[in-house]
Design a protein around this nucleic acid. Structure first.
Lengths: 357, 357
DNA sequence: GTAAAATATTTGTCCGTATAAATCAACTAT
DNA sequence: ATAGTTGATTTATACGGACAAATATTTTAC
C-alpha cells in the first residue's frame, strides 16, 4: 500500500507534468489541497516539501506555492556528454595533434572533451582519474603515465571498469590492464631506422632516449636489437638515457663530451624530432657539420621537420590520424561495439640530415 | 534568530564532522535527542531528515540512525568543478602552451578543463558555447574566433552573462563585449620589429600576415604604421595577406614570385615563427641566403626557434605565462574578485636570421 | 543450546492544534 | 492619487499524541 503523502505527491506531480499547472502558475493553497485530498495539513506539507526538493515547485511564505521551471532543469542533467582525455603533457609536441584528431570526431558526435594532464606523474594521474570519475565522463582516452613502470593506480582503474566506463589507451599501453590501445610499433620502427643508418655505412651510432615512457624504452630496445643483429660492431654502440625530469643542459653536456672525442659516433638517432633539432644545434657549436660529419635522425615527423636546414630524417608518426582513429574507436566503445587495438608501422622519411656523400 | 531544528541540525552535524560520531556509528535515538536538546520529536525528525538528505546520516526503521559515509560523498558533490576553455585551434602552435599554463593553475584549485575547438568558425563557436553552458561550467576562458569580424553569437554570450558565468578572453578580445582579456600588444610589437629592420638599413620589407584573427590584423597594422612614420620609403612596402583556410602552397607561390624579382624585398616579417621557418625554406629554394640576402623575422618565440639554423629573430610571446595569468584571473573571477585586463609588451629577441654584415 | 514467540525499542506515518512570519488586499488618512 | 495601516491569507515552525512497521531484545518452550 502506498502512503498518503506519496499519493498526494504523485497527484500533484502528474498535474504539473500534464500541464494542468503550468510553469509559474500559482498552485492551490495547503488548505485547498487538504480538502481536495481529504488529508491533514502535515500530509500535504510532506508531499509538497518533497516536490520542492525535486525542483518541481517553489514556495514563498505568505505568498503561495508555484510551479518551478522543472523542464529546463531536466535538460541540463541529460546534456553532459563528455569524454575524458588524460595526457602526460598537453602542450608537448605531438599530443596537441592527437587531441585535435580526437576532437574532430567526438565533437561531431555531440561530445565534449574534458582534458587533464599528469605531467608524467602517477600521483597526478590518480587525481585526474578520480576527477574524471566524479565528473561522470562517458568514456576515457588515456595516454599512459610512466608506462614503463608498474602502475600504482590499479584500484582506480578497477573502479572505472566496474562503473562500465570504457577506456582506450593511446601512444602506449599498460601491460597489466587489457584496455584496447592505439600505438605505433616503436621497437620495429627504430630497428628499421638504425638498419638504414648501417646501410649508410655508419657503424658507431649514438642513441639518445627518454626512458620514462614506454615509447622511449621501445625505441631504445629497437636500437639495441639492431646492434645485436650485427654482433661484429655491437661494441661500437653508445646509448644515452635520460628522464623527462632531467635538466636538458646536462644531457647536452654529455653529448658534447661524447662528440668531442676523436672517434666520435658518426650518427645520432634521437628519441624524437624536437630533441634532434636541439642536438643538431649542439653539434654545430662543436664545429661539426650535419650531415657531412654527423648524421642525425629524429622520430615522429614533427610538422616543421621538413622545413628546417637540414631537413630531418625521421619516422612518420600518424599523430592526427591516431587521434581520429582514437575518436572513432571510443565512440564505438560507447555504443558497446567491439574494437581491436591498432598498431601503426611508421614510414621512414629520409631527408637531408642523414645524407652521406 | 535561528530556528530550533536548525540548531539541532547544526549540533549533530558538528559532532559528525568533529568525529564524535564516526562513520558507521549508531547515533542516539530520537528520544535521546529530544531530552538532549529539550525539543519535541517533530523538531528532531526535521533536523535528522535534512541531514539524511545531505547524506550525513541514514536511517533504518526500527534499527536506528547511523552516520553515513559523508566524507567520500562530499568529494563527489564538490568535484565537478569545471572551467570551459574554447580555442580556435587546440593543436596550433602556441595555444597548447597556454592551455598548459591554465591547467597548472586551475587543477591546483581543483578544477578540470573542458576544452573545445572552433576551427576559427563562428558556427562551431556557437556549438561550443552552448555545450559549455549545458555542461554547467563555472567559468570560461575563450580565445575569440575571427575576432576581426562582427560576432553573430552575442545572444549566447548574453545568456552566459545572465547565468552569472564569468568569461575571460585570451590572445585577443571582442570589441563589443566588455569581458576582461589577456593579450599581447601586437600592434606596438610589430612596429618595434619593423623599426629594428629599418635600423638594419632594410627599406623594402615584405609583411606576410594571416588576417582572420585580430592578432594578425594588429600585426599587419603595426607593419603599416611603421611605414607611415617613414613616408619617404613607404612606397617600398609590400604586404601579403592570407586566411587560415587558404592553401599554403599558393601563398608560397606568391612569395616565390615576389622574391624572384630583381629588386626583391631585403627582409620579410612574418605572421609567426612557424610561417617564418617555412618561408626561409622557400627562400633557400630560390638560391637566396638567410640572412645574407634576405633577413627573416618571426613572431611568438616558438620553442625551437633558437635551435634552428639560422636562429630566428622574433618577438617573445609569453605563452605559458599567459596561461598561468589566465588561470589565476579566472579563479579570482569565480571568487567574485575584480580582475583587470593585462596587455603584455613582447620582448624583441634578435638572433641570426636578421644579422646583416 | 536452539528455535520460536513475546515484548520492547525505534523509526515511519498521520492527525490536530497553536503561534510566527511573510505576503496580499482592502481600507484609511493625507 | 498615494502612502501608510490594518486585517486576512498563506506558508513556516513547533508541540503533543496516536498508531504502524521494522528491528532488537528477552523470554519461553523444546
Amino acid at each position: 500500500m502506498e502512503t498518503k503523502y506519496e499519493t498526494v505527491k504523485k497527484g500533484i506531480k502528474a498535474d504539473i507534468i500534464a500541464g494542468t499547472y503550468q510553469t509559474g502558475d500559482k498552485l492551490p493553497t495547503e488548505s485547498d489541497f487538504m480538502h481536495q485530498f481529504g488529508v491533514s495539513r502535515y500530509t500535504i506539507r510532506r508531499a509538497v516539501g518533497e516536490l520542492q526538493n525535486e525542483r518541481f515547485i517553489y514556495r514563498i511564505q505568505g505568498g503561495g506555492m508555484f510551479v518551478d521551471d522543472w523542464q529546463s532543469e531536466r535538460v541540463v542533467q541529460v546534456n553532459n556528454k563528455m569524454i575524458g582525455v588524460i595526457t602526460t603533457h598537453i602542450a608537448d609536441y605531438i599530443f596537441p595533434n592527437i587531441i585535435n584528431g580526437i576532437d574532430r570526431i567526438v565533437s561531431d558526435n555531440g561530445y565534449s572533451i574534458l582534458i587533464s594532464n599528469t605531467h608524467n606523474n602517477h600521483q597526478k594521474e590518480r587525481q585526474s582519474l578520480i576527477r574524471m570519475l566524479d565528473s561522470d565522463v562517458e568514456a576515457m582516452i588515456i595516454e599512459p603515465t610512466q608506462s614503463a613502470l608498474p602502475n600504482p593506480n590499479l584500484d582506480i582503474y578497477k573502479k572505472i571498469r566496474e562503473a562500465g566506463i570504457p577506456i582506450l589507451c593511446v601512444n602506449s599501453h599498460y601491460d597489466d590492464l587489457d584496455f584496447p590501445y592505439i600505438e605505433t610499433n616503436d621497437l620495429e620502427a627504430e630497428q628499421r631506422l638504425v638498419e638504414y643508418l648501417f646501410t649508410q655505412e655508419h657503424e658507431k651510432v649514438l642513441g639518445v632516449f627518454q626512458v620514462d615512457d614506454s615509447q622511449g624504452v621501445h625505441r631504445m630496445n629497437g636500437f639495441v636489437q639492431s646492434y645485436l643483429k650485427h654482433p661484429k660492431i655491437s661494441y661500437l654502440s653508445e646509448i644515452l638515457m635520460y628522464q623527462s625530469s632531467d635538466e636538458m643542459a646536462k644531457i647536452f653536456e654529455r653529448i658534447t663530451s661524447i662528440m668531442s672525442k676523436e672517434d666520435h659516433p658518426t650518427a645520432i638517432t634521437c628519441y624524437n624530432d624536437k630533441l634532434a633539432i636541439q642536438i643538431i644545434d649542439v653539434i654545430r657549436s662543436l664545429d661539426l657539420r650535419v650531415p657531412e660529419d654527423v648524421s642525425v635522425a629524429g622520430f615522429d615527423d614533427y610538422q616543421l621537420s621538413e622545413y628546417i636546414d637540414p631537413s630531418l630524417t625521421t619516422m612518420a608518426h600518424p599523430k592526427e590520424k591516431m587521434g581520429i582513429d582514437a575518436g572513432n574507436a571510443i565512440i564505438k566503445m560507447i555504443n558497446k561495439e567491439n574494437v581491436s587495438s591498432i598498431t601503426y608501422d611508421p614510414e621512414m622519411i629520409i631527408r637531408n640530415s642523414t645524407k652521406r656523400n
